[in-house]
Design a protein around this nucleic acid. Sequence first.
RNA 1: GCCCCGAUAGUUCAGAGGCCAAGAAUGCGGCCCUUUCACGGCCGUGACCCGAGUUCGAAUCUCGGUCGGGGCGCCA
Length: 405
Amino acid sequence: MNKMKDFEKKAKAYALKNAIHYNGKANPGAVISGLFAEGLKREEVKEYSKKINEIVNSVNSLSLDEQKKEYEKLQDIISEREVREGLEELPDVPKNGVVMRFRPAPSGPMHVGHIIACMISSLYVKKYGGKFYIIVDDTDPETTRAEAYKNIKRDCDWAFGNITEYINSSDRMKLYYDYIEKMINKNVAYVCTCSSEKFKGFSELKENCPCRNNDLKENNYRWNKMLDKKNGYKPGEAVIRFKSNLGMQDPNPAMRDFPLARINEHEHPKQKKKYRVWPLMNLVVSVDDIEFGMTHIIRGKDHMDNAKRQKMIFDVFKKKFPWVYFMGRVKFNDLILSKRKLNSLIDSGEFTGDDDERLPTIASLRKRGYKPEAFAKFAEQRGLTEVDKVIDSKEFFKIIDSFNK
RNA sequence: GCCCCGAUAGUUCAGAGGCCAAGAAUGCGGCCCUUUCACGGCCGUGACCCGAGUUCGAAUCUCGGUCGGGGCGCCA
C-alpha cells in the first residue's frame, strides 16, 4: 500500500505541473506518462487510472494560484526529464578513444560537400580522443592529380585541426598486393578475363562466369600475368574479382562478384610507372580499415552497398567490422560540386584557381572569411542523421553565416 | 529491371509508445533599443506525407501507398 500512496502523491505533483503549464487544466495522460518515469508498470495503468482521474479532477478544481502553491510543496518529489544535448554518444568506444578516418579522392579540389561529410568524424575524435587519419585515395592513376596532395593537407588542416596523420594509399601497394595473394590462396578471389560487358551479361542472368571455377594454379598464373609489364594482360583484359557470399545469385546486383583490382598503365603522379595493377576502392578501404584498426566509420549513405562488400572482406580475415553510420546526403540545387566540372573551370582559366571566391571550394570559403567552427557547429547541430536534404546554397549559407558570427 | 535508405514549420534540427496540448535555431511579421545601419531584447507566425493496423494511448511500432535520395563502374 506504500507504493500506492507514493504514486498518488507523485500523481498529484504531475497533475499540478501539467495544470500550471496548461492554464489550470491538467490532462490524465500526462500524469500517467510522468508516472512511468517514477517506475509505474504498463500493466498497472488500469489499476491506477481511476485514482489518477480523481486526482486530476481535484487539481483542476483549484485556482491557478492554489495550484502553484501546492506544486511548490511537491515539486521536489518528481524527477525532471533528462534532456540530451551535444553530440549523440557512439557505441563501443574504447578507453583510449576512437580511430576514425576520412578518405578524400585526390581528383579535384575539396569543397563544401566534403567538409559537411567529414566534420562529424573530426568532432567525434575531438570528443573521445583517439586517432583521425586522412587517407588520400590515390589508387586511380588516371584521375589522381599531383597538386591534390598539398591541397588536401592545406584544406584538412584548416577545416579540422586534429589530423593524426596523412596517409597516401599508393604508398601501401605492397600491402594490397599481399592481401590479393592471400585472398587468391584462400580461394575467395579469382582472376577474371571476361570483358566488362560479358560479365555484366552473366550478372544479369545470375550465372557464374567461367573464370570463377579456375583452380589455384590457374589463378596464380593469371595473377602473375596481370603483374607482368612486358608480356602480361593488356588493360581491360583481366581483373581480380571477389567471390561474394551469395556469389552471382545475390539478389542485390551490386554484390555479385565485385572487382578488387584492375590494370591501368597511366602514369601515376606520385608512383610514376612503378605499378600497373591498381587495387580498387573496396579492397583498399578494407585493408586500411583492418590495418589501422578503425573503430568507427561515419560515411555517406551512398556507400551502403560498399560497406556490405567491405564487410565480406573483413569476414574472410575474421576481423570485427567497425561500427558504421551512414549519413544522409546534403544535395545543393545550385552549386558546382562535380570535380570534373571544377577542374575544367579552373584549368581553362575561367576561374582564377581553387580559391576563386565564386567557387564552393574549401580554399574559397577560407578566403571569404568563413571559420571552420561555423561548419563544426552546423555538423554538431545536424548530428547523426540518415535524412537526405536537398537545399539551396542560399539557405545553407544563411545558417553558416549565423554561426560564423 | 533488381537492391538499399529516408520523410516533423519556408529552411536546418529536437523527438527512443504516455511529462508532445510537438521544442529550438534560422526565416518571416510587429514592437522596443539605436540619429541611421548593424547588434541586441520582447511578442507573434508556422509542421508530424497519405491510408490501414497494434495499443487504454502512436510523430514514435507494423504493413501498404506516395514522394525523395542512393547503389548495381576495370571511379571513389
